[in-house]
Design a protein around this nucleic acid. Structure first.
Lengths: 152, 152
DNA sequence: ACATTAATTTATAATTATTATTAATATAAA
DNA sequence: TTTATATTAATAATAATTATAAATTAATGT
């Protein structure tokens, strides 16, 4: 935890930004809830628990900043809110998501499944890939089980 | 064009919806501007040119309906607006997008690049894939050329 | 240490995209 | 034709996000 904070602090300094108390509090929430795909509002409420004086706009600005520096990924599952995921340490890519259309759960896949596909895109389309976003929509293991049970 | 309209009309009827004049006007705009990733507002303004009496909410509702019936794909490039793409005739999947981070252009890839990846997801993660969304962010051919020129 | 400048924040207003409401209109069914 | 149903326009409401302005904090130079 502290190590990751220190690392992010350095990333900010390298771009002439400071790790203010508000920014640190925001990062800590993101670290604690790494797999939760929090919205800005979610983050705000969680940060507020420990730093009640923080403003919503500050959280938005911080998330935007972290997003620009590729420390967090801003993602959109089509439900009208942006969500923010801390990038894994040293990760070059967005992680992939499996969104269940039954229960709404979101699973992450950390492995990069797209290395071969990216090569095709670079070669066949002359497009220099810097990043990607990949989401699968379907039915998760649990819900598949549930359907089987329900129809038995 | 007329053939596609007729086809969509049938798809609507199959689900007990009618192809009202407003809906038809909307579909026609989507057909005419197939590759343009129009926002709801864009569509509204274009439909208005030919059917000035149409309301914005109707356009939203129509796009939502077409989206539910998988006639259009609702996509999100992270710029705060949803965009609507007519699905190619008979296509089972979203098409992929190449978004240029220099000039903002969006290219489409119609080929399905993910067949193998989907198999992995189904097998290794027990997730039954129904659909996917894939976007690459990077530098398009034109902008690569521009950089070379600029640094020469 | 003190004054000055710049960066950041809070609080709030404004904006923008989208959705809900309601009365009117068009369509289909009886 | 009458009645019921679906759809629409017009508008209000909502929700997410961004902009603004005054206050605070931190950094810099003297």
């Amino acid at each position: 935890m502290e190590h990751r904070i220190e690392q992010i602090k350095k990333q900010l300094h390298a771009q002439n930004y400071k790790l203010t108390p508000q920014r640190e509090a925001t990062v800590r929430v993101l670290l604690e809830r790494e797999e939760d795909h929090l919205s800005a509002e979610d983050v705000y409420l969680l940060v507020k628990e420990k730093s009640p004086e923080i403003g919503l706009a500050t959280v938005y600005r911080t998330l935007e900043l972290l997003s620009e520096l590729k420390i967090v990924d801003k993602i959109n599952f089509g439900d009208g809110v942006s969500r923010y995921d801390l990038r894994k340490e040293g990760a070059k890519h967005f992680h992939h998501h499996l969104v269940c259309i039954e229960c709404g759960s979101v699973e992450e896949i950390v492995n990069d499944l797209l290395e071969d596909v990216e090569k095709i895109v670079e070669k066949d389309f002359g497009f220099e890939v810097k990043d990607h976003r990949l989401t699968f929509h379907g039915i998760c293991r649990q819900c598949q089980g549930a359907v089987v049970k329900a129809t038995q």
